[in-house]
Computed example of a mutant assay.
Amino acid sequence: MTAESTESTEPTGATEPTGATESAESAESITHEQMWDDRYNESERIWSGEPNATLVQETAGLTPGRVLELGCGEGGDAVWLASRGWRVTATDISGVALGRTAEHAAGAGVADRIVLERHDLAESFPDGSFDLVCAHFLHSYQDMPRERILRTAAAAVAPGGVLLIVGHSGFPSWMEEPPVDVRLPGAREVLDSLALPVGEWEVLVSAEHRVPSTGPEGQQGFHANNTVKARRLA
């Protein structure tokens, strides 16, 4: 239930919703936690360690406060946010990923600004309210109530705070046939599914964008991504 830094340096497999090399059938035969722990145990590092480009762009000008990150992966975004003064609550379903985030944060000297929590967001959610709640590429081959999770995320935004959701709108252009039937909604669909109360939110961004993407065999193409950003007024 985590993905990280597909907008920057892409490791092999980072363009798939889970990044997993398993088939959909094998993914369904194990628990969600085990699937992600196995994925991270495939190599010493999966992601680039750099923050997502959209996060950098969309948080420019925001006053640092409390931030909740859903699906922190190996900590590229969490460490970047902490280094810029945010107090970060970083969650992931994978204990392996959280361990790597802790190591990254310690190496960057920001461990005291990051609280790590292990959650299967379909079952539990961090307590509290936040000035920024962000989710980047929160997709999974396994069944995951993504819309419900993102509505819960919106409810965790404090008045005056910002909700930032970045996701895939489809599979990579170089992928001839998607490996599994997973819904990858566009920006409009994501925004509609949030059901934000009229008069209580200001939509700041609802947009599609393409990011260059390289396949495991060197195929060149793009990944269609989308960004939804909204500020809570009340």
Rank of each mutant, 00 (worst) to 15 (best):
E217I: 10
N41Q: 15
P197I: 03
L233G: 06
T152A: 11
E202L: 13
V133D: 10
G13Q: 03
C134F: 14
A108Y: 03
E177Q: 08
E22W: 15
E50F: 02
P51Q: 03
F222I: 02
A158Q: 14
H32C: 03
H168Q: 10
E16T: 09
P212E: 04
S206P: 01
R151Q: 15
T6Q: 05
E22I: 12
F137N: 00
R45G: 06
A135R: 11
A158L: 10
L116F: 12
G75F: 12
L163A: 09
G186Q: 15
G71T: 07
V157A: 00
D131C: 14
T91P: 03
L194T: 11
E176M: 05
F137W: 01
H32Q: 08
S206R: 11
A156F: 04
R84W: 09
A156Q: 09
F222M: 03
C134P: 07
S124Y: 06
V198Y: 10
I165E: 01
E28H: 12
E117G: 12
A14R: 03
H139L: 00
A224P: 15
E28Q: 15
D92C: 05
L164R: 01
S124N: 07
S140M: 02
G65I: 06
L62R: 08
S193C: 09
V228R: 10
I149Q: 03
P185R: 05
L184N: 02
D112L: 08
